[in-house]
Design a binder for these strands. Sequence first.
DNA 1: ATTAATATATGCTTGACGCATACATAACCC
DNA 2: GGGTTATGTATGCGTCAAGCATATATTAAT
Lengths: 193, 193
Amino acid sequence: MHIKCYLYASRIQIGAMTVQKIENMVGALALALSDSFMLATQEQAPELGPAAAALALLGHEPGMPIERLRRALGLSHSGTVRLIDRLVAGGVIERHSSEHDRRAVALHLTKSGEEKCAAILAVRQQRISCALKVLDPHELEALGKIAEKLLKSQVHNLDEAYCVCRLCDAAACVNCPVAAALDESKAAQKISL
Amino acid sequence: MHIKCYLYASRIQIGAMTVQKIENMVGALALALSDSFMLATQEQAPELGPAAAALALLGHEPGMPIERLRRALGLSHSGTVRLIDRLVAGGVIERHSSEHDRRAVALHLTKSGEEKCAAILAVRQQRISCALKVLDPHELEALGKIAEKLLKSQVHNLDEAYCVCRLCDAAACVNCPVAAALDESKAAQKISL
DNA sequence: ATTAATATATGCTTGACGCATACATAACCC
DNA sequence: GGGTTATGTATGCGTCAAGCATATATTAAT
């Protein structure tokens, strides 16, 4: 849009390839990976589409209101309400009343929902693990560091954080870089006040 | 499914983090990247959904029949036909008759379609470039090598190749690793005969 | 030549999604 | 503290993309 994002001109050669080619391959890889685990996770949910992400988010943060879920899933409000309706009818989540805001609904997984959620997280991890199995330990470590750096730079507010992490396994991600980036940007805001 | 995919037990520590955490971050990163450029590319197409990928594929391979497009997009046949109908009505593609198979349709971009296709490829590249701009040249090169290795291992047949590369800029990706992996697997098949 | 497989087209139905609207509660503020 | 605005949720309604089943044409296979 209005921001100049190219640090290197894309034709520049870095090692054996151009920046352009690296960018293109990263895009293809991101698509391949997300295609793989998006399909797999959705097959574990009661329906295709955003249901799997909804269950994973509620597993991570029980009591989440509809509006927060809506932002994380990128749906319209009515779309989210109808999604919740179907998931309640399917017996995987329940609407409770919120503690501190009587307008809000506190969404919770049922026992069955927790099982679905566990299956969703497991199949996602399995798909990613399977894709990364060709890397040697050194490459895996390098990829981990790079992913951490990139993730930190991608997230600027809470909505984006919930969105990016909507299928994450919070238990697997100790010292989550996304949470750290959010804390840092909050700290920066306080200083600027 | 039936294949054991874990090379390392996920609790194993590699450098500063567990394999589990690395896998989780890679998943989140793949989601963040693909979310970003999927939305951006779809906004450049005449409609949201698979239209952007269809235009990119036809830009790369003019004359492609509906059935190949169908497999790359992962739609039903009728869904693909209707998508083509809408894109034809929108003036971005045309149905021609195929040279060697009188059942098949040869799909081609119109002038307007080529412009949309260029915009789609450009915005994708821009989004990825923007996301990677925090990396230094050394990290970028490392990521390039890792992405190349991972891409090669992910693609096993022509349908998967078209699917993974459905938004790629073929001009940017000289010596495409996906094509190379396909050639190798074909060569391996011939040897096994 | 029959039969099976492939490529495309279409009538029909379903269902997820968004818009507009309505209502309840909370936050603000003068 | 009453009035205004903002926030969170629910629902009637229309739209439209997607899949199923089926039909037709062409090619391949036996």
